[in-house]
Design a protein around this nucleic acid. Sequence first.
DNA 1: TTAAAAAATGCAACCGATTGCAAAATATTT
DNA 2: AAATATTTTGCAATCGGTTGCATTTTTTAA
Lengths: 349, 349
Amino acid sequence: MFKSYNIVCMKQDKEVTIYDIADYLNISAATVSRGLKDHPTINKKTKKKILEAAQKLGYRSNAFASNLRTKQSKTIGVIVPRLNSYFMSTVIAGIESIANEEGYQLIISQSQEDEQKEAANAITLFNSRVDGIMVSLAANTKTTDHFKPFLEKNIPIVYFDRVVETPDSLTISIDNYKAAFEVTQHLIDKGCKRILHLGGNVNRNVYADRLAGYKAALKQAGLPTPDNLVFFSNLSEDAGVEAANYINNLKQKPDAVFSANDTCAAYCMIRLKQLGYKIPGNFLFAGFNNDPISKVVEPNLTTIAYPGYPMGQIAATHLINHLKGIADISSTNSVLLRHELIVRASTQK
Amino acid sequence: MFKSYNIVCMKQDKEVTIYDIADYLNISAATVSRGLKDHPTINKKTKKKILEAAQKLGYRSNAFASNLRTKQSKTIGVIVPRLNSYFMSTVIAGIESIANEEGYQLIISQSQEDEQKEAANAITLFNSRVDGIMVSLAANTKTTDHFKPFLEKNIPIVYFDRVVETPDSLTISIDNYKAAFEVTQHLIDKGCKRILHLGGNVNRNVYADRLAGYKAALKQAGLPTPDNLVFFSNLSEDAGVEAANYINNLKQKPDAVFSANDTCAAYCMIRLKQLGYKIPGNFLFAGFNNDPISKVVEPNLTTIAYPGYPMGQIAATHLINHLKGIADISSTNSVLLRHELIVRASTQK
DNA sequence: TTAAAAAATGCAACCGATTGCAAAATATTT
DNA sequence: AAATATTTTGCAATCGGTTGCATTTTTTAA
């Protein structure tokens, strides 16, 4: 009794397949398959009939069957340190816009800034047979061995923002060295002689390059770079507060602060103001990222703007073009996007 | 020549299947299949052999074949208005954390606040046979007809934050009415008599409820609610500036502003300060969301905090439990999360 | 009108994992 | 040692779309 009822239910739920369409039109499934994907050898009239029948019967194609047969998933994997930062979510929005347009799905995962989790996510993506991956590395990632399986299977990898130069994969970023140099030079031009840098994990190119650019600018200006003028942290809000306390305790105070991100800069400024300092009176301040808070914090923060949304779009476009065979990723090694120094009140004496 | 070379290449790339493992161990593929998924009827020793062989041969399971056969994708679709807002990316981070833990993949798409695109995304997700979807509605979405196909196929839907009450699906949100009431009451308690509201699209529950809560509080206090004390917009940065200009042009100025989000509140404040007003001197200010900028803008903004990350986790947990058959979604109608009034300097006279 | 060329369609074997049911192997009980 | 019960394993069909090659149909040329 129940069984037969169930069967009826199943029948109702039953998916329409190309075989159903074939039966309905008295043609073969092969023709239907070809007709649905606009194969050139199928007669236009037949195509039209097929499309109409598909519509009428409520057909939807089964990607699993197709993927199984064709061995491609039309899916791109994305690994980022964190989703919920303004910059990252903007990049991902850019990626999504292109992927969506091109009929690719996105599988997004977070490494939470942890190499272990990054590796685990990589395995998951590998096992779900993504056609390609896009990666922004975790802060503590030392090796990229966990991406080897992809390379071995010729699954393309695009690194963005937090990149690592490798012969086989494309990197998309800005010239962090140059940008940091420009920021530092800007502070020097304003007459600063003791510029403190709030640095991130130098494992990552973005922070290493910013540090290097900062040092290079100082060196070129003939300014010393004592160790106690660089304060390393994870650049969080709390780190900004700590940095402020650190500065407060320095015997010889800096006259400017260049932070490797805006969040840390903003919270450092806020804390310093609490401690009675004036900005830009006592310290000029510059950040990096052009985060929304940079134009809300007081004084508005001088910073480096660089385009997250386009970065995502460019990364996705390169990857998809490679997948489509239009352009080969390995022909290009890296793409550098433009950045821009945005001067605001925090560096106006 | 080339052909045979190609074949060799293919062979190398060839994926290891359960059949290869079966051949290798001289057992059947059925046993391997069962062994790999810890089926109870398989001998432990056999299991061990299978696992070892799988390891050694570099086997990875083919989800397409499995999905094709089992007719489930282990994938959840997500549709949000925008990825790159602090709140949304935080919710998604929460969703991801649970999905990842439970072995589900996420497919994320953006409606860009547009009903058409929302519908298109829905179709895409439907065709990729997600096991369930999680939706936060676009601002201009009028009907939820585009989700009907899911309901017809018994694919569960969870709405979060920007929800719509329906008999068949679960909604997860906060009590926006009550929260807005509390904010308004707080302003009234501070002695405000003319409180202006910056409202969003009342199509969406979040903005309609916030407006209603605001009005209810005024009414209860016996205060009038003239139409010109509500300024509707998309609550963007620009809208905040416009709102400030609007206020500046009002003959009878308000003594407080309650904005339906923090972004709009912050930019409204900034613009008003530019125009020479003092905050909280001339106007008390309150926002909604506890966005990062709310504690950076000066004065720090009184606002409503509500938990994005947990909201994502809860939404994902409910959906997955439903999919696993542990709990039925339709038994619960809606889940309300706790919110909290955070009083900051912008409402301290 | 017939032969040849071109266009359209069909056959059937995949892709790889799953699972109901039957069969074989092993364990337990008389 | 035979009979029964219990574990393990295997057979074979299935999921639905794809595609090389063969076949049929239609068009063009002779």
